[in-house]
Computed example of a mutant assay.
Amino acid sequence: MEPMAHYFYAVKIPDETKTVMKEHMERLKRSLPFSRWVHHQDIHITLAFLGYAEQEQLVAAHKNVEIALRDEKAFPLKINKLGVFGKSDRPRVFWADAEYSPELHQLRKKVFSACEQADFNLETRPYRPHITLARKWQGEEPCHLNLLDIWHQLQPEPLPFLAKEAVLYRTNLQETPKYQVIHSYPLQT
């Protein structure tokens, strides 16, 4: 039996930035033993996680998001450091952080609200934009957070990119890469 698909809205990372991140991730894998690394084509910044969704809800969310983002403009972002979620010595999620962006938070607010109007019950924790790189520490030794300083060796200056597209992704767990674009919402450039 095929697992139920999950859906989420995200900022799509441009392909040229994904290529740079792929190279960085290959180097990071050598010193950071996480069990599951994200395929570089799947990296993104989540705006709203919908989970399983009925077709009617997806259609309503699509219409709402399309209207909400109609006049939104593209904006610059910079990936500037690494971080973890979970216990610091055995983290469950390893991520790259983007410098604070009021435009990103505004975009998220509009998408989040549009999805709530389509009757989605969304995550209520404070929004922490990030790019998930890997999951589940599997090192024999505990993780030491000073290992995350390797980012500055890989990328001495923050890695800039232009956020020019929001997308609705479908998760296909049996595929690699596993995220499929269902709808795209280009931001004005």
Rank of each mutant, 00 (worst) to 15 (best):
I79F: 03
V93E: 04
K12F: 03
S184A: 15
P102N: 06
Y100R: 10
V11P: 03
P156S: 06
Q57D: 06
E23H: 12
K164Y: 12
H24N: 13
N172I: 14
I79G: 00
K22V: 07
L147G: 09
F120K: 07
K78Q: 10
F94H: 06
L187H: 04
E99C: 00
H6M: 02
A118C: 11
L32N: 03
R125M: 05
Y9A: 02
L77W: 01
Y7F: 15
P158T: 00
R92Q: 09
R36V: 10
A48Q: 05
A96K: 01
H44I: 06
V11S: 07
M21Q: 04
F112R: 12
L122N: 01
H105Q: 13
A61F: 01
P33C: 04
A60K: 13
F112N: 11
S88V: 14
S113D: 13
T132Q: 08
K81R: 14
I131Y: 03
M1Q: 11
M21S: 02
L32P: 01
A134G: 12
V59E: 15
I67A: 13
N121D: 11
L173K: 13
L28T: 03
A48P: 09
H24V: 04
E116F: 07
Q180P: 00
F85Q: 13
P186T: 08
T189H: 12
K18H: 02
G51V: 03
